[in-house]
Design a binder for these strands. Structure first.
Lengths: 152, 152
DNA sequence: GCTCTTATTGATAATAATTACTATTAATTT
DNA sequence: AAATTAATAGTAATTATTATCAATAAGAGC
């Protein structure tokens, strides 16, 4: 008879969220680790990964998977537009959709192209009863288990 | 006194390109490996990775980095729109920008949201003399070397 | 505040995707 | 056809991420 009070408020989790919310970049897990370490020197990288998973699953942060070999994280959960450097992998925001060209020019980037990607659930995944929330807020491990409808 | 005739036409490279061009999915390196193996059983996974690098660097194919833990590759190099499954990681195409809603409906996906990402070069990368072509067609290893302008 | 329960942690091992290495093979030039 | 050397197959190494597990500490109830 317990009302499933899961999510505990730990110093570590709070610190990670604070840092991510306070920063305008889109840091990787190890970048966050280095920053949070200044506040909690004994924190471990695994804890950072685990809390990033939880925060993403609960919708408090977003994963952005489009920048190099490492996952990046975004403290801003409102839908918005990214601009990514093909040289160093850095990702910046462009807030508004109107006057977009102007705002892009303001960033100083030399734009080579863009990609528009919709996300949701494919017919195969819709037809199977899938467990609770998936996708954006889901860990790679979980997602990997459903990679059967793959080839050709 | 050699005119740098690099790129050789190997059976392996040709087979990899053929398969990727003939397929409407956006396979991962190991998926391509399995398919190409039917034609060249002795091919190695490393060769697949290497040739995907070269083909992307020469602009004949595209990397798409937005689908789970593995890189995916696209034989279609014209700018176009993707739709990705949050359940299984599958990526499909949506060809036209007009009547987009209608075409999305045709895919049978349940759309949860979208991301619009521009790519190019950030001011920092523009100010340094960068080696030849970079970014989309570049290997992760190369790109990683320039990840200094990172934090906060 | 103190005790109990158990989610979370730190530390480390394991896994998965990708890249590097090296002797051998085979495309291209001559 | 012989010479040159980029590309290959096979394997080891690296890197990012996830799993494991004993120890810790957050929250509930007293």
């Amino acid at each position: 008879m317990r009302h499933m009070e899961c999510h505990r408020e730990t110093r570590q989790k709070q610190a990670i969220l604070d840092v991510l919310k306070s920063v305008t970049s889109h840091p990787t897990a190890d970048e966050l680790y280095e920053i949070v370490r200044k506040r909690i020197p004994a924190i471990s990288l695994g804890t950072v990964y685990r809390n990033l998973d939880r925060l993403a699953a609960s919708g408090q942060i977003r994963r952005i998977q489009s920048a190099g070999s490492q996952m990046r994280f975004d403290g801003c959960i409102e839908p918005h537009t990214h601009i990514r450097c093909m040289g160093c992998g850095r990702v910046d925001d462009i807030e508004a959709h109107e006057e977009l060209r102007y705002r892009i020019d303001m960033t100083g980037y030399e734009v080579q192209g863009h990609r528009l990607e919709f996300y949701g659930f494919c017919p195969a995944c819709l037809s199977e009863d899938r467990p609770e929330s998936a996708g954006i807020g889901e860990s790679v491990g979980l997602r990997k288990n459903r990679l059967e409808n793959r080839l050709e």
